[in-house]
Design a protein around this nucleic acid. Structure first.
Length: 277
DNA sequence: ACGGATGTTCGCGC
DNA sequence: CGCGCGAACATCCG
């Protein structure tokens, strides 16, 4: 599920659910979502703690609890946080959502489940160090929503490597939060051939690309109105409202030519061989 | 039934 | 050292 807009949506949901709440109990199944001692730390260090704040950097969720305990959550490919509302007294106990890998029982009797069928996500627990200062967070490039996209800075960064622009856009150190969908969409919107070396985009074209990235991300938020993302709805249905992502073989929305498909860095991309140059 | 999927990391070869 | 490639992870969906 998760690129920047979905993770932003998850952050907003978690803020609503966890605002002012205290964790009564934290539980975690033994999966590779947790590495090293993180599973035990998750279960042991969170009980009794009140949420302080939730931040998002790129695709990373940062949950800060009082007492300097932080939970870092990355959704991988199929991770999501799901809330189970309190069950009425006497009512049948609600079934846990499928693939629940970790749970936070809160003081309003709700339960937040971290669900992740493919186990590509990660959860880690940190004490003492503010999450934003972790090396993996510091290594992230600017976040398009939090920091905006500075075309000059992006041009500088892209000029340092000849790798294809599509590959550069997937690098979280270039921009934090762009994934395969929005890289595909933004390159189409900007009319750029995904194979073009990043260091051969001139400043004006990078400006165009920056606007295209922003437009592509904004579109995901606009689908269902402000703050709502259709394909993240509770029912879990995916609304494919993308211009060309997953539309290879269909006509280009701009010129009608059949959209091509290729693989770069192990990821597939749809693109228009006439319109993107 | 088979192929591919929104992400990241690691090992290998050049 | 840098880069590119493929595999790996585990499950679901069309």
């Amino acid at each position: 599920m998760p690129e920047l807009p979905e993770v932003e949506h998850a952050a907003r949901c978690l803020r609503t659910w966890l605002e002012g709440r205290v964790v009564l109990k934290a539980e975690a199944a033994d999966t590779r979502i947790f590495r090293g001692a993180d599973r035990r730390a998750f279960a042991r260090r969170l009980a009794g703690r009140r949420l302080e704040r939730i931040d998002r950097r790129g695709k990373n969720l940062l949950l800060s609890f009082e007492g300097g305990v932080g939970v870092w959550s990355h959704l991988g490919m199929t991770g999501k946080w799901v809330r189970r509302a309190p069950v009425a007294t006497g009512a049948a106990r609600e079934r846990a959502p499928s693939h629940s890998r970790a749970r936070l029982r809160l003081d309003d009797a709700s339960v937040l489940h971290y669900c992740d069928p493919r186990l590509f996500g990660r959860i880690a627990v940190h004490e003492g160090t503010p999450l934003a200062e972790l090396p993996e967070i510091r290594a992230l490039g600017p976040d398009p929503l939090l920091d905006g996209i500075d075309a000059g800075a992006l041009h500088d960064k892209l000029s340092r490597s000849a790798r294809p622009i599509k590959v550069a856009l997937l690098d979280q150190a270039v921009l934090a939060g762009i994934g395969n969908i929005h890289a595909t969409e933004a390159l189409f919107r900007a009319g750029i051939d995904p194979r073009r070396p990043g260091n051969r985009l001139d400043r004006a074209l990078v400006e165009q690309l920056a606007l295209a990235i922003r437009a592509s991300l904004d579109h995901a938020f606009v689908i269902n109105g402000p703050g709502e993302i259709a394909y993240l709805s509770e029912g879990g249905h995916v609304q494919n409202d993308f211009l060309i992502y997953d539309h290879a073989g269909e006509p280009c929305p701009r010129c009608g030519r059949t959209l091509a498909k290729m693989t770069q860095a192990g990821r597939t991309i749809a693109w228009c061989q006439r319109y993107q140059t």
